[in-house]
Amino acid sequence: MVDILIYIAAAVTGIAFLFALYRFLKGPTAADRVVAFDTMTLVTVVFIVIIALAEGRGIYLDVAVIYALLSFLGVIAVARYLERGL
C-alpha cells in the first residue's frame, strides 16, 4: 500500500522533472535556464529521498544534505556573472 503511494509520488515527480528539463532545453533567455536548473536540483533532492526510502538505507540521505547545501552555489555564481559582478 505504502509502496504504491511511493511509486505514484515518484511518477508525478518525474513528470515535473520532465517539465523543468523542457524549460531548460528551450528557455529563451539565460535566466530562464537558471530557474529551470534551480527547480531541477530541488526535484533531485526529492528523488534522492525516494531512492533512500526504496532501498531502506539511511546513509543515502547524506547526499541530499550535500545537495541542499551546495546546489545554490552555482545559481549564485551565474546570477553574479549576469549582473556584471564576481
Binding site: 532501498e55 531502506g56 538505507r57 539511511g58 546513509i59 543515502y60
Partner: peptide
Amino acid sequence: RTAPILDNA
C-alpha cells in the same frame, strides 16, 4: 546488492 557502508541495515 547494496552500498559498501556498514550500519544497522
